[in-house]
Amino acid sequence: MRAFLEANGLEAYYGWTKVLHGLDLSVPEGKVTALLGANGAGKTTTLRALCGMTTVKGQIFYDGQRIDGKPTEEIVRLGVAHVPEGRGTFANLTVFENLLLGAYTRSDRAKVAEDLDRVYHYFPVLKERRTSQAGLLSGGEQQMLAVARGLMLRPRLLLLDEPSLGLAPIMVAELFRAVRTINQTEGVTVLLAEQNASAALDVAHHVYLVETGRIVTGGPAEVLRGDDAIRRSYLGY
């Protein structure tokens, strides 16, 4: 299978501090790939580095095109939706406006309206609350809004950063169900960074383990699920 997104020797810096130390990563098209690892392992930084939010060394290919060194907004315009950790909601704008912003780069108005219906279908609560200020939503609702905003881009690649963080288990299940549907019915490639290994392993096809800014191991999800040693030492369940 062709690598839709590929990173070779990826290094990332915050100021002078090196956070990623030569990471190699390959995300197959149309699949869900998960980055697992403890807090501080470098998962978030990896996602941020992939879309130009940190200083980067190494090569990043997206759909065969070099994207390292491009500004974030240009990478987004290539169809990469990044749902950041902490959701990045526009708290003072309404839910509807948040969703419209998700489709900011698109000019096909009719299809945008269609997609609006589509995300309302995935997350009905957003439709109910479309005129309220996004900052007033609950944590789970804000997470849904963030994912929905990402979908409004009609992305080819969806980067999800810790979507389960701070959510009740039932919300986590609902969210991951939505992610699976999005992946299966629309063929959106997903790269997911998660601490919640069991939830991620359920939905992912392929898994990488990240530790202190390096890839420790990787492989098909079912293999990792079956490997007790790895499960105990890295996934902690």
Partner: peptide, 8 residues
């Protein structure tokens, strides 16, 4: 960028 609270 300060508001962009760096990730992990």
């Amino acid at each position: 960028s300060a508001r962009a609270a760096s990730g992990d």
